[in-house]
Each structure stands twice: as C-alpha cells, then as structure tokens.
Simulated scan of single mutants.
Amino acid sequence: MKAVTVKKIKDELAHKSTNELIELCLQLSKFKKENKELLTYLLFESHNEEGYIESVKEQMDNLFEQINTKSFFYIRKSVRKILTLTKKFIRYSKKKETEVELLLHFCYKLKNFKPSIKNSQQLLNSFDRQVLLIEKAIATLHEDLQYDYKLELEELLD
C-alpha cells in the first residue's frame, strides 16, 4: 500500500465527524509509541512549554547519570541515544526556543561530563555540531531572545 499525500489526508479528515476523528487518533496511538508520545504532548503538555522543557531536561539529566563510563565506546553510544531522544522531543514542540533550550542543556551536560569529552574526537564533533545547530536556531529568534541565548552560548563555549 502506498501512502497518500498530506493534502489528501487533510481533505479527507475535513469530511469526518468528531467521533470518527477521535477514533482515528486512538487507532494511531495504538500503533507506534511515537504517535502516542506526540498525542500526549499535544493534548497535555503543549499549553505549558516551560513544564515540558523542564521534564525533558530532567529526563536528560537522569540519562546522563546512567551512562556507563567504563569506555568511550559506551559513552558515545549513550550520548547518541540521549541526543536522538532530545531531537525527538524537539520535533514534537516545533518551537525554536524549545530547541535552543534543550540543545543548550545537552551541550552543558556533555561539556561537564566526567571523563572529559576532550579525550574523544567523536564526542567533540558531536558537541560542535550541536553548537552549530544552536547558532542556526538562535538566528531565527526575536532579537531580545537572540541576545539572551547568545550570552548563554558564549558562557558554554568559555
């Protein structure tokens, strides 16, 4: 089966009743964990973006504490997993402020991680890529927010 375009789906959804839409959303949530997580964000957490950011930061903190530090292989693997999870939560929100906040937090945690990431070129490269993404996201924000986030970024890079 080939998937149809988003426009065709949107047009078809316009013809559905409220009960049919509810049923479709529930069916979607049963198929993939990501669908259920996205619906959870949209229904319960999108109205409180600050709370959402804090909960994601707590989850990131917990994951950083659980990293196996026996070798850089395990550290890199865990850091990639944390970054993938963080990017997924950023996609749910679609807000640049959330993206900057979460990536800044990730970079702070990575920079202050023991053992130092300076001993692993891959981790340094990952850190640098996230800094570039933060700079790109900051450039799209309002001037006041740009100034605040640039200060935070400079503090991170010092």
Rank of each mutant, 00 (worst) to 15 (best):
K96G: 13
D144W: 05
K94V: 12
R80Y: 11
K95I: 12
L103T: 05
Y41M: 02
V56F: 03
S71F: 02
K81T: 09
L42P: 00
K57L: 03
K2Y: 15
D61G: 00
E23F: 07
K30I: 03
I117E: 06
E50C: 01
K96V: 15
E65I: 07
F31N: 13
E154W: 06
V56E: 03
K81A: 11
F106Q: 06
A14N: 09
K30L: 12
H15A: 14
S29C: 14
Q27Y: 11
N119L: 15
L153Y: 01
L43Y: 02
L123Q: 04
D158E: 14
C25I: 14
R76I: 05
L156D: 01
S78A: 12
F127H: 00
E135D: 06
G51C: 03
T69V: 14
I134Q: 00
L141I: 09
A137P: 10
E54P: 05
Q146F: 00
D11Q: 14
N125Q: 11
L24R: 07
D128W: 01
M1K: 10
S71V: 04
A3Q: 15
L124D: 04
L85R: 06
E154K: 12
L156S: 00
F89R: 14
K118N: 11
K2S: 15
L63D: 13
K95A: 13
M60G: 02
L123A: 00
Y74V: 00
F113A: 04
A137W: 09
L157I: 03
A137H: 04
E37L: 15
I138D: 02
E155G: 01
C107E: 07
L132Y: 09
K96H: 13
S78L: 02
K16Y: 12
A139L: 10
L24N: 06
